[in-house]
Simulated scan of single mutants.
Amino acid sequence: MRACGLADKRGVPAGQATHVQDIVAEVERQGLRDVVLVGHSYSGIPVGQAAERIGDRLARVVFVDSSVPTDGESFVSAWPDGGAAVKASIAESGGFWPLAPAAHYDGQGLADEQIARLVRGATPHPGATLTEPAVLSGPLGELPATYILCVMPGAEPDDAEPDDDVAELLTSKRWRLVKMDTGHWPMFSQPRELARILLNAAEE
């Protein structure tokens, strides 16, 4: 699925609610059941909201080293400066978050050709998706969920544990934690291991 404003839909203004509706509409359009929704990085926020909205069509939601939605909070809300630098960058770039340079991917267990592929395929991110607040109608911890935490070997102790918001959700009996010894892009650095974890999640 191609979200509005990204990939071949690049340059189209979109808010976070647009991405949530993109997911929900695709599930409904195809009449899907026993759906496993997977969100990586930013996309955990719209995926978490969509998981709530598709109701009994959902089998499980998997967050891959991602943010998780908090009602009334945006992707950048938890950033040290409240996302001021990101918001300024978006404003200076016509409403889109500019592309990250190749150096952004250093130290993530990626080969040079994998970094080149990421950079080559990237498109500027619609700014409103990062600054609009999430909307949840119930506790996220009530959803059946798997959180995949990616931790590079030798990482600092604080980086080897989930953030506080994720740690709180993991106290739910419906959530479980899986750790991967890799960086933030396991679909490139450890695709087979990630696929195995996703298949196991789908069978739970």
Results as ranks from 00 to 15, higher is better:
30 Q>I: 06
145 A>Q: 09
101 P>F: 05
115 I>H: 07
200 N>E: 12
145 A>R: 00
169 L>A: 04
175 W>H: 05
34 D>N: 15
15 G>V: 05
199 L>K: 13
134 A>I: 05
148 I>K: 04
141 G>A: 09
84 A>H: 09
10 R>W: 07
65 D>N: 13
173 K>G: 13
70 T>N: 06
139 P>I: 15
204 E>W: 14
99 L>C: 09
118 L>G: 11
130 L>W: 02
1 M>I: 07
8 D>Y: 09
122 A>Q: 15
152 M>K: 04
72 G>Y: 02
66 S>F: 02
124 P>I: 15
75 F>W: 11
201 A>Y: 04
65 D>K: 03
42 Y>N: 10
134 A>K: 02
18 T>E: 04
90 I>V: 15
98 P>E: 02
9 K>H: 09
123 T>F: 14
86 V>E: 07
53 R>V: 11
78 A>G: 14
72 G>A: 12
104 H>L: 08
48 G>H: 11
187 M>Q: 14
1 M>V: 10
110 L>D: 03
88 A>W: 02
93 S>K: 04
157 P>S: 06
58 L>N: 09
76 V>G: 03
44 G>M: 01
47 V>L: 05
97 W>S: 12
92 E>Q: 14
26 E>A: 14
39 G>F: 02
131 T>G: 13
157 P>K: 03
83 G>N: 04
42 Y>R: 13
90 I>W: 00
131 T>C: 15
161 E>S: 07
200 N>S: 04
110 L>R: 02
36 V>D: 01
195 A>T: 09
176 R>G: 03
90 I>Q: 00
116 A>P: 00
87 K>M: 13
173 K>V: 12
188 F>Y: 13
12 V>N: 00
41 S>P: 10
39 G>C: 11
59 A>F: 12
189 S>I: 07
4 C>R: 14
